[in-house]
């Protein structure tokens, strides 16, 4: 009996949270006629949250009835994104969508989430995987490393099983026709620490995360899995230049629920794209080693579809699909 009561209580709490949303009018001319909330599916203070807050801060002049950031964490981002996808399609709830939107559904832990539930507004920033080894590692180029991987079982650290950097390593291995021994850690920092201690052979986290150790001379980056060289590090080659056509990275952007009027979507895009060019935001992104990479809604929508197909194939191949 008690168990039933508790279950009922928990259920009502969950549903209560879903239905308790702010109200706003769905009209493009008067938008934003009420307070707008930006859903961040990750914890306050984390990288994604801080970028969202910096952009919202730059755009808040366009939202006279107030715009606030709300963190809805859980499920590796699935909780917050599902909440945002099921909000009223009137622009009153904007969601920060991340690459997990196109990876979680394929690992079977997306709780019904799918990328087409969102109308993409714009992509804001991107970060690509950097193949990083210890500074005293015998491998000086990506080719040396991958050649060695043909005979030796390379231990490649990532920030979590099924996380984007795991997929990046897997994507590289697939393209190069080798096998890695993927070692998952709880986040990027423990993986970097383990590499520094010489317990693993390489890591595939983003360049921003290893930047300080590379500058300190403890680590070296063999290549980035980016479509073109990163402007902050023009001397690091891309894998594509070296003959391995693979570009995998994370991105962050904004979306509203499907069926939101086109005029409202355009209005939000105009507000946010201007905010992304503001000196304060540019300064913030430069200070935190983040790369601004703006795509408009149409381009972003194409990227979502392409990435979704690519990650589906990779995840199926890795056997990461659960249940």
């Amino acid at each position: 009996m008690k168990k039933i009561l508790v279950t009922l209580l928990l259920l009502s709490l969950t549903f209560g949270a879903v239905f308790a949303q702010g109200v706003g009018e769905a009209s493009a001319d008067t938008y934003p006629s009420g307070p707008v909330s930006v859903i961040v599916p990750y914890a306050a203070g984390g990288g994604t949250d801080l970028i969202a807050r910096a952009l919202v801060d730059a755009a808040k002049g366009n939202f006279p009835k107030n715009i606030t950031v709300e963190n809805r964490t859980g499920g590796g981002g699935a909780v917050g994104m599902s909440y945002g996808a099921n909000a009223k399609p009137d622009g009153s709830v904007i969601t920060m969508i991340t690459v997990e939107l196109v990876t979680l559904p394929h690992t079977g832990t997306g709780a019904g989430l799918y990328y087409d539930q969102f109308e993409p507004i714009m992509m804001l920033n991107s970060a690509y995987s950097a193949i990083t080894v210890k500074a005293d590692s015998p491998y000086n180029t990506l080719n040396e490393f991958l050649d060695a991987a043909k005979t030796k079982n390379m231990r490649v650290g990532n920030s979590g099983v099924g996380a984007i950097w795991h997929l990046a390593a897997a994507g590289l291995a697939k393209t190069a026709g080798v096998n890695f021994n993927h070692i998952p850690f709880d986040g990027a920092a423990p993986a970097i620490t383990s590499l520094l201690g010489g317990h693993i052979d390489a890591i595939t986290v983003s360049y921003a995360e290893v930047d300080s150790q590379v500058r300190a001379g403890n680590l070296k980056v063999l290549a980035v899995l980016a479509p073109e060289r990163i402007s902050a590090t023009p001397d690091i080659p891309t894998a594509k230049e070296l003959g391995y056509d693979v570009a995998i990275g994370t991105w962050r952007g904004f979306g509203v629920p499907k069926n939101t009027p086109k005029a409202i979507v355009d209005k939000i895009y105009s507000f946010f794209s201007v905010a992304a060019q503001s000196p304060g935001f540019i300064q913030y992104m430069a200070n935190t080693n983040n790369i601004i990479d703006v795509l408009d809604g149409a381009e972003y929508g194409k990227k979502l579809a392409v990435d979704n197909a690519m990650f589906k194939a990779l995840i199926d191949e890795l056997g990461l699909k659960q249940q």
């Binding site: 009561l5 209580l9 009502s12 709490l13 209560g16 949270a17 239905f19 308790a20």
Partner: peptide, 10 residues
Amino acid sequence: LILYTALLPT
């Protein structure tokens, strides 16, 4: 308290 937390969100 159970009643309170159940009604709180609504």
